[in-house]
Design a binder for these strands. Structure first.
Length: 463
RNA sequence: GGAGAGAUGACCGAGUGGUUGAAGGUGCACGCCUGGAAAGCGUGUGUACUCUAACCGGUACCAAGGGUUCGAAUCCCUUUCUCUCCGCCA
C-alpha cells in the first residue's frame, strides 16, 4: 500500500517528537480541531451540531477569544511590518553611507512595543487553542440524535433470524467460568503480579489469542487489501494529540514516569499518525493499514464496571483497521471498513449486530460510528466488540495530514477512519461463551483450526 | 552511556548577517513542437494565518525553543531527532 514509486515513506522525515510541555504547546499552536473558519462563519450551525452531542459547548468564549486574537495579530503584524521596513532602509542607507540615526531611534522605541505585542498575541493564541482543541467533532448529518446509548439504532443482525435462545436445558456459563474450567485463564495470578483488570492466558488460551490475531491479520491483508504494520506500543504527546486523546483525556492513559511517552490505548494512534504532517498525493489514496497491538487503558471512569472477566481490562490485544482517504470517499470507506470487521465475526461464526451510535454516544473525534456488538450467551446480551468511526477531517486537521489534488496545487485535509477488526480479548470471550458445550468442552471454529495445529476441541482441565 | 557529523521547500542540494520564501537541479502543471510519444524549448510551481467583495497586500515559517543585532536560514545557548564510531545489551 506504500506508494513505493515516489519513495514516499511515513518513517522518513517525520516531525521530531516533543518532550517538554512547553514545546508541545508550541507545536499545538498551529493545530486545529474543528475548522475555526467554519465556527466563525456558521456559528449557529456549529453550535447546534455540538449541542446534539449533549453536554454544554459554549462558543461565546471562542468567538470572544478569536476576536481578541485577531486584533492582537493585526497589531503585531503592523509593528513587524514597520520593523522590516526600517531594517531594509537601514541596510540601504549603510550601504550608501547615509545617516540612519533617525530610523535607529524609531526602532529603539518600536522594539519594546513589538515585543510586548508579540507576547500578547501569543497568550491570545494559547487561550484560543485551549478552547478549540477541547471541542469534539461535529456529528455527521445522518447520525441519529439522542442523549445516550439508548438512542442508538440497530442496523442489522447476523445471522438472520438469530434468537439467542440456548438449547433446551442448557445454561451457558460466563466466559470466566468457561475459561477457568478449561484452564486457559488465570485472573488471580494476574492480580498478584500486577493488580486488578489483568489476565494471564495459559496454554491453549494463549494460543487461541495468537490464533485469533493471526486469523484476523491474514484476512485483512490477503482479502481486504490492508498493509500490515507492527507499530511501537508507546506514543508521544504529539501523536496522542493528533488522534484526539490529548489534551482532554489524559487521565485515560498510562504514562511513563521518566520519559514523555504514553502506552497506546489503541493502534489507531500510531497508524493514523503515519500521515501526520504529510502532504499525500491524491493518487496514493486510499491508504489502508492493519495492525495487531496490545492496548492499554486506565479505565479511570469505569470503577465497578465489568470487574470480572475479560471484558474490561487495562491491557488487551486488538487488531485495528485504519483508512486514509479522499474526503468524498470517506463515508463509503466507513461502510467497507465496517464490513471488513463484520467478516471477521462471520467467519468465526459469532452472532452479532451492527449499531449506529447516536449523537450523544459518539466518541470525541468521531463524526459517525458503527459499533459491532457480539452476542454473549453467558450474559444473555450483546456487547461491543468493534467500533468503526469516520472522523472526517477532524484528526487530519489536528495532525496536519493533507492531500494534494492531482494536477493542482491545492491541498486539503485528508479524511481518517479507524475501526477494530476486531478486539481480540473480547473475541475470545465470545468464543468461550458461544462455543461452550454442555459437556464442558469448547469447540474450535473451523477457521481457527489451521492456526491451532488442527485442534478441533478443548477439553476441561483435569483436576 | 562516550565521541564526532548533521537537520534547508514534494525530493536532491546551494547558501556564514541585509530586498533570500530562499540559487541550481529533479519532479509536477501549462504552452510550443509532434501523426502520437520521447527529447527539446518556454512559462509556472511552498505552507499557514491575516486583509479584501475580489484583485493587490501584510505577517510567520530554513528541526524546536531562547538569545545577540537596526536586521538572523546564516552568530550564540538549550533541547530533540538522524547518521558514523566506541561501549553496553534482547
Amino acid at each position: 500500500m506504500w506508494p513505493g514509486r515516489s519513495g514516499w515513506s511515513p518513517w522518513r522525515g517525520s516531525p521530531s517528537p516533543r518532550r517538554r510541555g512547553g514545546t508541545v504547546w508550541q507545536a499545538r499552536r498551529k493545530r486545529k480541531m474543528l475548522d475555526p473558519k467554519q465556527i466563525r462563519e456558521r456559528p449557529q450551525w456549529v453550535e447546534e451540531r455540538l449541542a446534539s452531542r449533549g453536554g454544554r459547548y459554549d462558543l461565546k468564549e471562542f468567538h470572544a477569544l478569536e476576536a481578541l486574537k485577531r486584533k492582537a495579530q493585526a497589531e503585531t503584524e503592523a509593528l513587524q511590518a514597520r520593523r522590516n521596513e526600517i531594517s531594509r532602509e537601514v541596510g540601504r542607507l549603510k550601504a550608501n553611507r547615509g545617516d540612519a540615526s533617525g530610523l535607529l531611534a524609531e526602532m529603539g522605541e518600536l522594539g519594546p512595543r513589538l515585543k510586548e505585542a508579540e507576547g500578547a498575541l501569543r497568550l491570545q493564541e494559547e487561550a484560543l487553542l485551549e478552547v478549540l482543541t477541547r471541542l469534539p467533532n461535529l456529528p455527521a448529518g445522518d447520525v441519529p440524535v439522542g442523549p445516550d446509548e439508548s438512542a442508538n439504532v440497530v442496523m442489522h443482525s447476523w445471522p438472520a433470524g438469530f434468537s439467542g435462545v440456548p438449547p433446551e436445558g442448557f445454561l451457558p456459563l460466563n466466559h470466566w467460568d468457561v475459561g477457568e474450567r478449561l484452564g486457559v485463564l488465570d485472573f488471580n495470578l494476574a492480580a498478584e503480579t500486577v493488580g486488578a483488570r489483568f489476565t494471564f492466558f495459559r496454554g491453549a488460551g494463549a494460543r487461541l489469542i495468537r490464533a485469533l490475531t493471526s486469523f484476523m491479520l491474514d484476512l485483512h491483508t490477503t482479502e481486504h487489501g490492508y498493509e500490515e504494520i507492527l507499530p511501537p506500543f508507546l506514543a508521544n504527546r504529539e501523536s496522542l494529540f493528533g488522534t484526539g486523546q490529548l489534551p482532554k483525556f489524559e487521565e485515560d492513559l498510562f504514562c511513563l514516569r521518566d520519559d514523555p511517552y504514553y502506552l497506546i490505548p489503541t493502534a489507531e494512534v500510531p497508524l493514523t499518525n503515519l500521515v501526520r504532517g504529510r502532504i499525500v498525493e491524491e493518487a496514493e489514496l486510499p491508504l489502508k493499514w492493519t495492525a495487531w497491538t496490545a492496548c492499554f487503558r486506565r479505565e479511570a471512569g469505569a470503577a465497578g464496571k465489568d470487574t470480572r472477566g475479560l471484558i474490561r481490562q487495562h491491557q488487551f490485544d486488538k487488531v485495528e483497521l485504519v483508512w486514509i482517504t479522499r474526503p468524498e470517499e470517506s463515508m463509503a470507506a466507513l461502510e467497507s471498513l465496517t464490513l471488513h470487521a463484520e467478516e471477521v465475526l462471520k467467519r468465526l461464526e459469532l452472532p452479532f449486530r451492527r449499531v449506529a451510535l447516536c449523537t450523544g454516544d459518539l466518541g470525541f473525534s468521531a463524526a459517525k460510528t458503527y459499533d459491532l456488538e457480539v452476542w454473549l450467551p453467558g450474559q444473555g446480551r450483546y456487547r461491543e466488540i468493534s467500533s468503526c468511526s469516520n472522523t472526517l477531517d477532524f484528526q487530519a486537521r489536528r495532525m496536519k495530514a493533507r492531500l494534494r489534488r492531482a494536477g493542482t496545487k491545492a491541498v486539503e485535509p485528508v479524511h481518517t477512519l479507524n475501526g477494530s477488526g476486531v478486539a481480540v480479548g473480547r473475541a475470545l470471550v465470545a468464543l468461550l461463551e458461544n462455543f461452550q458445550q454442555p459437556d464442558g468442552s469448547l469447540v474450535i471454529p473451523d477457521v481457527l483450526r489451521p492456526y491451532l495445529g488442527g485442534l478441533s476441541r478443548l477439553l476441561p482441565a483435569s483436576g
